[in-house]
């Protein structure tokens, strides 16, 4: 099963919304994946255990795991495009 790490500043609020949106979408698509939340600060130490990192904030560090910025899932602007991008890593 693929593993997704969802990160935001505090790992409390926006990652919760994004994680639940991705979860719902994956269920609709019939894709199984586990989703874990964390703080942006924890991304470097955790990323390599995951297939995809999704962030709401700005992540500037370098990691080998693919990373997708998901502010669209909060603002609604360009949301579908970002969903497609996330799904492309998990299919």
């Amino acid at each position: 099963m693929k593993k997704v790490l969802v990160a935001c500043g505090n790992g409390i609020a926006t990652s919760t919304v994004v994680a639940s949106k991705i979860k719902d979408r994956l269920a609709d698509e019939g894709i199984q994946a586990t989703i874990t939340q964390c703080k942006l600060l924890e991304v470097p130490s955790k990323a390599e255990d995951y297939d995809l990192v999704v962030t709401t904030g700005n992540y500037v560090g370098k990691i080998s795991t693919p990373i997708v910025g998901a502010i669209s899932l909060l603002t609604g602007i360009g949301q579908e495009e970002i969903f497609e991008k996330i799904l492309s890593y998990l299919k």
């Binding site: 609020a13 990652s15 919760t16 919304v17 639940s20 939340q37 909060l74 603002t75």
Partner: peptide, 22 residues
Amino acid sequence: MLALTEVHGHVNMLQKVIELIQ
């Protein structure tokens, strides 16, 4: 402004805040 007491909780409320924003 959100004053939250659960780390990955308040999912419904947070979703509704985001719906409002959109």
